[in-house]
Design a protein around this nucleic acid. Structure first.
Length: 391
DNA sequence: AACAAGGGTTTAG
DNA sequence: TCATCTAAACCCTTGTT
């Protein structure tokens, strides 16, 4: 890249609501604040089947964390009869999130804003802070206070020269914290952290890194680029090294939605498409979301998780984009039939996915780009350019 | 050569 | 043993232009 973070001098604020779903439950019922709260996704197979979505810090201190089986969480809290297990109420969290995001947006009006998830957002305050980290810190602190006053929610805010560092600054100060890492401090901030703390490195990559002798982010920042490309791919290898150096030019900007999906755990494992009825609400929901967004999709796919928890996917690209429930349903049913015909599959979870969105308003532009692409290609292969052809 | 499409993996929250 | 749901980025392979 032509410009480094230091040269471009950005200042980014990361906003991360603390234990969001569980905190939403606490503000709805303040009695919960003194108890371990576990927000669960019940799959409906048995009384306790499913996983923990989020837990408050009282529960976390007792070992309950995101992703663990609900049964295990119950075991961990067996000696805590005051513990509360609640089903996720996505609707409610969404309404709280909308109000929060409005506050975040207006906290530095005019600044580029990006909602990164239901409970995370970024602000690029380079302009509004006049390039001054002190002023940025004040904007962030004021916002933190306002979220507390207006919504009763605690959040952790981070200030940094880019999204990566701002985000990692919050990670180091959770919950109810504030972190600031200036451009000159980035190297020291990162260098001794375990490589697993770098955003984008999960357990798999951590293992591979360990086998290369990479333990800290500093190790990764100095590691041989060619070996990294070889081990992690031509895109990911260089990307990870760059992130380890604290360099991130990803802009703070609204992201277009690229795909929509819904998946459910089946009432019983299936080896035929006998669960059609369970796909109806999913197709209805997806079709409805498409039309709400004004989107039509060019790709329709199915996702299946086998009893061995392997993912299987099948999909097709359509001649003309659709948002129709009937069309999505019938394509999905054909894909499921094909999946079961292709081999003996025992499926635990099944779902639908759509992608390849063309907003109607963008269809003309897309068609024109498509034409241009074809012209470019045909000229590439034309006799004048093709050495063999011109011979 | 560049890109699209299909299917799988990894990560995150 | 038990293992949710949504979405993005990336990987690899194969086919098309």
């Amino acid at each position: 890249m032509a410009q480094s973070d230091a040269e471009s001098g950005r200042i980014v604020i990361a906003v991360d609501l603390d234990y969001f779903f569980a905190q939403c439950e606490e503000i709805r019922n303040p009695d919960y604040k003194s108890k371990p709260i576990v927000v669960c996704v019940f799959s409906g197979r048995t009384e306790t089947s499913g996983a923990v979505s989020t837990a408050n810090y009282l529960a976390r201190e007792l070992g309950v964390k995101s992703g663990i089986p609900i049964v295990n969480a119950k075991r961990l809290l067996a000696n805590h009869p005051e513990a509360i297990f609640l089903p996720v109420d996505h609707q409610y969290y969404e309404t709280v999130s909308e109000r929060v995001m409005d506050i975040v947006k207006s906290s530095s009006s005019g600044s580029p804003f990006e909602q990164a998830s239901i409970d995370e957002a970024y602000l690029d305050v380079s302009e509004s802070s006049n390039g001054d980290f002190e002023r940025a810190a004040r904007i962030a602190q004021d916002l933190k206070t306002e979220l507390k006053i207006a919504e009763g929610l605690s959040a952790t805010l981070g200030v940094g020269p880019n999204k990566l560092i701002a985000k990692m600054a919050t990670d180091s100060k959770k919950p109810d914290g504030f972190g600031l890492v200036g451009a000159e401090e980035v190297r020291n901030f990162l260098k001794d952290l375990p490589v697993r703390k770098l955003i984008g490195i999960g357990p798999r990559i951590e293992d591979k890194m360990a086998s290369l002798g990479i333990k800290t982010i500093g190790d990764l920042a100095d590691f041989d680029a060619a070996v990294l490309s070889e081990s992690f791919g031509r895109h990911l290898g260089p990307q990870l090294k760059k992130l380890a150096q604290g360099r991130d030019d990803d802009p703070v900007t609204a992201r277009p939605i690229e795909q929509l999906s819904r998946i459910v755990t089946l009432k019983e494992d299936a080896n035929t498409y006998s669960f059609q009825d369970q796909m109806i609400p999913l197709a209805r929901d997806i079709s409805q979301r498409l039309s709400t967004l004004g989107f039509k999709c060019r790709s329709v796919g199915i996702i299946a998780i086998t009893t061995g928890l392997k993912t299987k996917a099948r999909g097709v690209t359509l001649e003309s984009p659709t948002d129709s429930y009937d069309e999505i349903s019938s394509i999905a049913s054909g894909l499921f039939e094909g999946l079961f015909r292709s081999g003996n599959q025992r499926i635990r979870r099944a779902g639908l996915r759509v992608s390849g969105f063309d907003k109607e308003t963008r269809e003309v532009g897309w068609a024109r780009r498509e034409e241009e692409r074809q012209e470019t290609l045909s000229s590439f292969f034309s006799p004048a350019v093709n050495p063999k052809g011109s011979a």
